[in-house]
């Protein structure tokens, strides 16, 4: 692989998706976070009969997780 490396105009790191891809990734993290942990919370609600508290906690946790993921995966490329 060392022989066929063309100089690339953008010297950016390889692992940061550009433009549209980055936007969709961020969106899917934020929505996905709420859905996944909201669903897990809902399951807990069904199990413990806690009337929606666990769903709420799950959604908030999922939002936090989504934000952490966006910052970690798409934030400042080190």
């Amino acid at each position: 692989m060392a022989g066929d490396q063309n100089p690339r105009p953008t010297g950016g790191p390889d692992d940061v998706p550009t433009g549209a891809g980055q936007g969709w990734t961020a969106l899917s993290y934020l929505i996905g976070g709420m859905l996944v942990w909201g669903f897990i919370g809902w399951l807990v609600d069904q199990w413990l009969d806690s009337g929606g508290i666990a769903t709420g906690i799950g959604v908030v946790l999922g939002m936090a997780g989504g934000i952490i993921l966006v910052v970690r995966r798409l934030g400042t490329p080190t």
């Binding site: 990734t25 996905g32 976070g33 996944v36 946790l61 999922g62 997780g65 989504g66 952490i68 993921l69």
Partner: peptide, 13 residues
């Protein structure tokens, strides 16, 4: 310690 929170989201998305 936040990986358990993040891995399901990563898998899902």
């Amino acid at each position: 310690y936040i990986l358990p929170l993040l891995i399901p989201i990563e898998f899902f998305s």
